[in-house]
Design a protein around this nucleic acid. Structure first.
Lengths: 218, 218
DNA sequence: AAGTGTGAACCTCTTCACAGCA
DNA sequence: TGCTGTGAAGAGGTTCACACTT
C-alpha cells in the first residue's frame, strides 16, 4: 500500500501526465466560471482530444463520473491534483536569473500552492542577496547549503549551457530529484533523477518543420 | 516528386523529428571536434536512445551508412538538415519582448542559418523602434504589414496569455503557418496551422510529478 | 569481426463499440 | 435517451534478430 508511486509508473505514461495537467488547467477555469459538471466530450473538445481518450485517462487515475452529470468539476479537479501533486508540496529552485530565469519566476511564482519557488541562484553580485517576486537570490557557491536546508527537490536550469553539467552534479549531490533543463546540453545524471528537456531551439526547429507540412497535428 | 512534404508526414512522427533534431545537434558538436564518422551505438549513447532506434530513424530519412565507417558525420549532418530545413530558410517573429521574449531572442539569434528572426513586436514605446540583438522591435499594430512584407511564416508567442488568441488570429490572417506558443492558452487555429505548445507551468508540473517516482525516464 | 538495413515480433497507446446505468 | 466504463481491435512506435557488407 505504500508503493502507490510504483503503481503510478506502471500505469501512466508521459503523455497521460501531459493530458492530466491540461485537464486540470481546464477544470480550474470551468470551476472559476461556476460550472459544476462536464461531460467527456466537452473536456475532449476543450483539450483537443477524443472523448474516449478523456474517459480512459480518468479511468486510469480511478475517478468515476456518472452518466447523468458526467464529471463533477470540483471533485475531478481535486482528484487529478491529489494524483499529480506531492501531498507535502514540492520545493523548487531556479538556477540563473537572466532573462529566462526571470521569465520562469514571473510565470510560476505562486501559481500553484503545492509548488514553492524557494530560492534562486546567480553569480551576479547585483542580484545576489536581493529578493525578486518574493524569492531570494543566493550565490551559486551556496547551492549545497541552501538546497539541503530548504529540502529543494526540483531545479529549473536557466544558466548558460557550458556551466550546466557541473551545476547539475552539485544539485544532484545535494538531493535534487528532478531537473527542468532549459539549456541545450544532454545532461547525464543517475537513473533516479528525472530530467525534462526543454530546449527552445529544438522547439523552434520542430515548429518550423511542421509548419511547412499542412494539416498535421503533433 | 513535388510532394516530398506529403511523404514526410506519412512516414515521420513528432518523436522522430525530436530525435533527428537531437542527432543533428550532436553531429554538429562532433563535426567541430573533427570527428569524421560515428557508429549507431555511439550516436545512441550520446542521444539516450538504442542503436536500433538510431538506425531506424536514419533509414527513415533515406541516409545510408556503411558497416566499416558507420555514418559520415558531415554527410549525415547535411542529410538531416536538408530533411528538416526549408530550402529557402524560414522567417520568424517574436511576439512580446518581456523577459521571455528576450530570452528566446538571445537564445535563437543566429544559431542556425536557415532560421532568421526577422522582427520582434511589443507595445512598450521604450522598446518599439529599437534594435535588440540585430532584431528590430515593431509596434504590435504593425503585425499585418510586417508579417506580410517580410514573409514571416513562424511566430513565437511570448505575450500575456489573455492577449494570445486575438494576436494569433491576426498572425494567421497575415500568413503565419506555425506558432510556438509559450502562453498557457489552448489556441484555436485553422487546421493548416501548426501549434507547438510549450507551457512552462506544465513542464514544471511534469518534472515534479516524475521526480517523485524513481527510475522512470520519460 | 563488427558494423548496417530491415522484416517481423513485440509492446504501447488510441479508438471503437457496446453493455450498463440513471 | 445519452452518458460512462471498458474489453477488444486497431494503429503506431520500438526492439529483436539476422542476412548482408567490407
Amino acid at each position: 500500500m505504500k508503493n502507490e508511486t510504483i503503481d503510478k509508473v506502471k500505469k501512466i505514461s508521459s503523455k497521460n501526465i501531459d493530458r492530466l495537467i491540461i485537464y486540470r488547467k481546464i477544470l480550474n477555469k470551468l470551476r472559476k466560471e461556476g460550472i459544476a459538471s462536464v461531460y467527456s466530450h466537452k473536456l475532449a473538445f476543450l483539450s483537443g482530444n477524443t472523448p474516449a481518450q478523456v474517459r480512459r485517462d480518468l479511468m486510469d487515475i480511478g475517478y468515476h463520473g456518472t452518466p447523468v452529470h458526467g464529471y463533477k468539476v470540483n471533485e475531478l479537479y481535486d482528484s487529478i491534483s491529489s494524483y499529480l501533486d506531492s501531498p507535502t508540496g514540492t520545493h523548487v529552485a531556479i538556477l540563473g536569473l537572466g532573462h529566462l530565469g526571470h521569465a520562469v519566476l514571473d510565470y510560476c511564482y505562486n501559481r500553484r500552492d503545492k509548488i514553492r519557488i524557494e530560492a534562486a541562484f546567480d553569480i551576479d553580485p547585483f542580484k545576489v542577496g536581493r529578493v525578486f517576486n518574493g524569492c531570494r537570490c543566493y550565490h551559486i557557491d551556496d547551492i549545497e547549503q541552501i538546497v539541503r536546508s530548504r529540502s529543494i527537490k526540483v531545479a529549473i536550469l536557466a544558466i548558460p549551457t557550458k556551466d550546466a553539467q557541473k551545476i547539475v552534479d552539485r544539485l544532484v549531490r545535494s538531493g535534487v530529484k528532478g531537473i527542468l533543463n532549459y539549456t541545450s546540453l544532454q545532461l547525464s545524471v543517475e537513473s533516479d533523477v528525472y530530467v525534462e528537456n526543454n530546449d527552445m531551439m529544438l522547439s523552434l526547429e520542430k515548429t518550423i518543420f511542421f509548419s511547412t507540412v499542412s494539416d498535421n497535428k503533433n
